[in-house]
Design a protein around this nucleic acid. Structure first.
Length: 273
DNA sequence: CAGACGTGGGG
DNA sequence: TCCCCACGTCT
């Protein structure tokens, strides 16, 4: 099993932060930010009090900055409605902003050692290949995955599944030769020349629009500037020259709409600072 | 529900 | 240089 820092704790807040960071972000880029955030903001109360802008600043290098907004809002809800303690109930976790089926179950399994299946794209791939050999819908996938968790074994089982998907049963070029499931794998028994069932299974990643020239790129550039301080008209003009007026203005509009940034005394700033 | 949402690494 | 890849949640 990989030695990852968040695997050495059972602290629910530390695990919630790790799992939100790991949404759409590889392990290598999350480690430093996770360690540093928990040193300074070791509880939901500390994160709530620090303000949203502080969370967004700490999100540098992780991408999908809305997650920082969600995490701050989640911290506020945890303080206001759960006495500062991350809830250990599936529905309460799902009610937190930015927490979906994957993250909620990851907190249950890794912080509270509950026997639920954590289903991310890696696990979806393993199950559709090795267990059913056929594509699955999200609800069926979750049921099949839950049935594989042995009693009292949720923590270990889920960590093993995540590692196996990330390191062995990979999307392309799976390492079937050294795989522990090779004898029973449904896909392999059917003959690996058969279409890969994980390709059309719910929850596996899909291609996305080109990044170069996108609004997303401009959003990232805007936040890069604002993390370093407020941006007056000269800084905004510089961005417009570099990335195009239309694109920057759309980026600003969507960032304002999502509550990441705002105008304050004629300058753009991170919201909640 | 298809599309939006960032970043860094590798070929 | 560029293009492709990985990675969940929300609307």
């Amino acid at each position: 099993m990989r030695d990852l820092p968040w695997r050495r704790t059972r602290d629910p807040w530390a695990i919630l932060v790790a799992e939100v960071m790991l949404q759409q972000t590889q392990v290598s880029r999350a480690e430093t930010a996770w360690t540093s955030l928990l040193v300074d903001l070791p509880t939901p109360a500390a994160a709530a009090a620090a303000g949203q802008a502080e969370l967004v600043r700490r999100w540098e290098g992780l991408g999908y900055n809305r997650r920082a907004v969600g995490l701050h809002r989640a911290a506020v809800v945890i303080v206001d409605r759960h006495r500062g303690a991350v809830p250990d109930d599936l529905d309460e976790l799902l009610a937190l902003p930015g927490v979906g089926p994957y993250t909620a179950r990851a907190v249950l399994a890794f912080a509270f050692e509950r026997d639920v299946a954590v289903v991310d794209t890696n696990v979806a791939r393993i199950i559709s290949r090795a267990v059913t050999g056929a594509p699955l819908s999200a609800p069926v996938l979750q049921r099949v995955a839950d049935a594989l968790v042995g009693e009292g074994d949720g923590w270990r089982h889920n960590q093993a599944m995540l590692d196996h998907g990330a390191l062995v049963c990979t999307a392309r070029g799976p390492a079937c030769d050294g795989c522990a499931l090779r004898r029973s794998c449904a896909w392999r028994r059917a003959g690996a020349e058969n279409p890969d069932p994980s390709r059309t299974t719910a929850g596996t990643s899909r291609p996305q629009a080109r990044f170069e020239g996108s609004v997303r790129q401009a959003r990232g550039a805007v936040l890069d500037v604002l993390r370093r301080g407020p941006a007056g008209p000269p800084e905004v003009d510089r961005l417009r020259q570099r990335l195009g007026v239309d694109r920057v203005d759309r980026a600003l509009a969507t960032l304002v709409a999502e509550g990441l940034i705002e105008w304050s005394a004629g300058r753009m700033v991170l919201s909640g600072g």
